[in-house]
Simulated scan of single mutants.
Amino acid sequence: MLNFSEHPHRRKNLLTGEYVLVSPHRSKRPWQGQVEDVISTERPFYDPDCYLCPGNKRADGTQNPEYTDSFVFVNDFSALLADTPNEVYDEEGLLHAESERGICKVIAFSSRHDLTLPEMEVGEIKSVVDIWQREFEILAKHEWIRYIQIFENKGSVMGCSNPHPHGQIWAQGLVPVEVVKEGEQQSKYFNKHQRSLLGDYLALELKKNERIIIDNDYFVVLVPFWAVWPYETLIISKRHVTTVLDFTENEKMDLAKTLQELTIRYDNIFKTSFPYSAGMHQAPVNGEKLDGWHWHMHFYPPLLRSATVKKFMVGYEMLATPQRDITAEQAADLLKEQSTTHYKKNL
């Protein structure tokens, strides 16, 4: 019998068709690798040098309004530009490039410089969810846009260039690689069974109850069976909807509560502001209707053993296939153990 907690094994990612190597016996090895200093996360209520704080000037000279909740603007240094000409470059079928149009926006989650999602009130997070929905609707009206990626990089280790709590939206003219892979797997399953792939997966996970972290009226948070990152999680809507635009007021409030609880649990693991990259995956827009798509949100955090020990894809993972030591079940158990009261409130 295959013992998940003892034997090396591969697990298949239902959303991409790819595999991750799990080596549970390696979690017992002593750590003599890189140990980093813990960066203080104590920040002021307002920082006069922050480009995102209310009333401050951004890097390009634009002045922010004196906003009191959330604030949205087109990124001053966008990775994609709306006026990019439509061109294709090809040389002998060996050197190929295509132009890419897009619109990139920044969302300051709060006017306060010192808050992150786990420390915000549910109502404040609900306002962010409202902005996600509103901006999705606005961007989808551009007929040339095919995909809208809503995401957040939290922490400098995840490439966040400004500590003020914020997320981003990149809308683009082509559907990106990871979304294409997930779309193909979900469409294939739906065409065969006339049911949502994630809906059936969620029903099985709820039945087994081995990797479930949060289960409320409208959403479930779990460590996916195929998780790659140490404490990777997946938020899945219980109702089969294709985009954030489909959520009702009750669902948006429940999503806000879910995001608050999950991120509090993250912070409480190592008593630190837990870094991660997180983002929604949803159906492309302005193309064929994809009934098989099921809204979900990924969280990819790099912390492994403590606030000072991180895990990124290196060596074998970059050259061969992703690999992890702690199992998804072990990660789920630790997340479930965490309090839903933020650790700072007990200091």
Rank of each mutant, 00 (worst) to 15 (best):
E6R: 13
P8E: 13
H9L: 12
H9Q: 12
T16L: 03
S27N: 11
Q34A: 13
V35K: 15
I39H: 11
G55P: 08
Q63S: 13
E87F: 08
V88I: 13
A97C: 01
S99M: 03
K105N: 08
S110E: 04
R112A: 11
L117M: 15
L117T: 15
P118T: 04
M120T: 02
M120Y: 05
G123Y: 07
E124K: 14
I138A: 14
K141I: 00
K141F: 00
K141Y: 00
I148W: 07
E152W: 02
N153G: 03
G159S: 04
S161V: 02
H166K: 01
Q168K: 03
G173W: 02
E178C: 00
E184K: 14
S187E: 15
Y189S: 04
Y189M: 01
F190K: 02
K192L: 14
H193S: 13
Q194R: 13
G199C: 06
E210H: 10
E210Y: 01
V223H: 05
P224S: 12
F225T: 09
V228Q: 13
T233I: 06
V244Q: 01
V244C: 08
N250M: 05
M253H: 07
L255Q: 06
L259A: 03
Y266F: 15
N268W: 01
A283C: 12
G287I: 02
H298D: 12
F299K: 06
P302I: 04
L303E: 10
R305Y: 02
R305V: 00
K310L: 13
E317T: 01
M318I: 10
P322D: 05
Q323R: 14
A332P: 04
E337F: 02
Q338H: 05
T341K: 15
